Deep mutational scan, measured.
Amino acid sequence: NQESVVAAQLIPINTALTLVMMTTRVVSPTGIPAEDIPRLISMQVNQVVPMGTTLMPDMVKGYA
């Protein structure tokens, strides 16, 4: 089963992602794949992401 990127903390809107903000977990439905974490660093979220929420492609500016 593929791991997806999950918020390790509350991420406010327009925050640039850092490694410490993200963790990985096997979730359903699947979100952004864990191997894309290096690509996500410094990208901004376009909404508030509560802790434990799976990051979906449409939540990250410039990802999709």
Rank of each mutant, 00 (worst) to 15 (best):
P29V: 13
E3M: 06
T15K: 04
L55E: 00
V20D: 09
V49C: 15
T15C: 04
P38N: 10
I13E: 15
P38E: 06
I32H: 01
L17N: 00
Y63F: 13
L55W: 01
I32E: 00
D58Q: 14
T24E: 13
K61L: 10
Q2D: 15
M22C: 06
G52N: 10
I11E: 00
T30C: 15
N14T: 04
A64R: 11
Q47G: 07
V27A: 15
V5Y: 02
V6I: 07
Q2W: 14
A8S: 12
I37P: 00
A64F: 03
E3N: 06
G31E: 02
L19V: 08
I11M: 05
G52Q: 13
T30L: 10
G62S: 09
M56E: 09
I13A: 08
Q44Y: 06
I13Y: 12
M43Q: 08
P12A: 10
V45W: 02
M22W: 02
I11S: 00
T15L: 03
I41F: 06
S42F: 05
V27T: 13
I37W: 04
V20Y: 06
S4H: 02
V6E: 09
A8H: 11
M21E: 02
T18K: 12
V6L: 08
E3K: 03
L40A: 01
V5K: 00
R39W: 05
T24N: 09
M59H: 09
Q2H: 05
K61I: 07
Q9W: 05
K61S: 09
L19N: 12
M56K: 14
Q9S: 07
Q2I: 12
L55K: 00
V5R: 00
I32R: 01
M56D: 13
Q9E: 14
S42G: 14
L17D: 00
I13K: 06
L19H: 12
E3C: 12
Q47F: 04
N1C: 12
Y63L: 10
I32Y: 02
P50I: 04
T23Q: 14
T15H: 05
P57S: 12
R25Q: 14
Q9A: 06
T24M: 13
P50V: 10
G31W: 05
N14Y: 06
I41P: 03
M59D: 03
Q9G: 05
Q47V: 07
M56W: 03
M43S: 11
V45F: 01
P12F: 03
V48W: 08
K61D: 07
V60G: 02
T15M: 05
T24C: 05
L19Q: 13
N1S: 15
T54G: 03
V45N: 03
N46D: 09
T54M: 03
S42K: 08
N1H: 08
G62K: 07
P38T: 06
V48N: 15
P57G: 13
Q2N: 15
T54F: 02
D36Q: 15
N14H: 07
D36I: 06
L40T: 02
Q2C: 12
T18Y: 03
T30V: 15
V5P: 01
T54P: 07
E3Y: 05
R25D: 14
G62P: 04
P57V: 13
G62L: 11
T18A: 07
T23G: 15
A16I: 06
T23E: 14
P29Q: 11
M51H: 13
N14Q: 04
V26D: 15
I41G: 02
I37C: 05
G62C: 15
A16M: 13
V48L: 14
T23N: 11
T53S: 14
N46M: 05
S28L: 04
T30F: 13
T24R: 09
G62Q: 06
L19Y: 13
V6M: 05
D36W: 10
E3T: 05
N14L: 05
N1D: 15
Q2Y: 12
V6Y: 03
V20K: 13
V26L: 12
Q47S: 08
V20R: 07
M22T: 03
Q9C: 04
G62A: 14
A34K: 10
P33Q: 07
V6N: 02
G52R: 05
M56C: 14
V27C: 04
K61N: 10
S28K: 03
V45R: 00
P38V: 09
P33S: 13
T30M: 13
L55D: 00
L40P: 00
T18D: 08
V26M: 13
T23Y: 10
A64Y: 03
T18L: 04
N46V: 14
S42C: 06
V6S: 05
A8Y: 05
L17E: 00
V45C: 04
T54Q: 03
V60F: 11
T24A: 13
T24F: 12
M43G: 14
T53M: 14
G62R: 07
V20M: 05
L10C: 15
V48C: 15
T23V: 12
M43F: 12
E3D: 12
S4I: 02
E35C: 15
T15E: 05
T53Y: 12
Q9L: 08
L40C: 06
S42E: 10
S42V: 02
I11P: 00
T23C: 05
E35K: 05
P57R: 03
A16S: 08
V20L: 06
E3Q: 04
V20W: 05
R39F: 04
L10F: 07
L55N: 01
L17W: 01
V20C: 08
N46F: 06
N46P: 02
N1P: 15
S42P: 02
V5A: 10
I13W: 09
V27F: 02
Q44G: 06
V60Y: 01
A16V: 10
Q44L: 14
A7S: 11
L55Y: 01
P33Y: 09
P29I: 14
I37R: 13
Q44S: 08
M56S: 08
V26W: 06
P38L: 04
S28Y: 09
M21W: 04
V5T: 05
V27Y: 03
I13P: 10
M59R: 02
K61Q: 07
L55A: 01
Q47L: 09
V26G: 07
M21C: 03
L19T: 10
I41H: 03
I11N: 00
V26N: 13
S4G: 04
I41S: 05
N1R: 02
M43N: 09
V27G: 04
Q2R: 02
E3H: 06
A34C: 08
I41V: 11
N14C: 08
I13V: 12
S42D: 06
T24W: 11
M51G: 04
Q44M: 05
P12Q: 08
Y63S: 09
M21H: 07
V48P: 11
I32S: 01
D36S: 14
A34Q: 10
Y63T: 06
V45D: 00
V48G: 11
V6D: 00
P38R: 07
S4A: 03
M59T: 04
Q2E: 15
S42I: 02
I11Q: 00
K61M: 10
M43I: 14
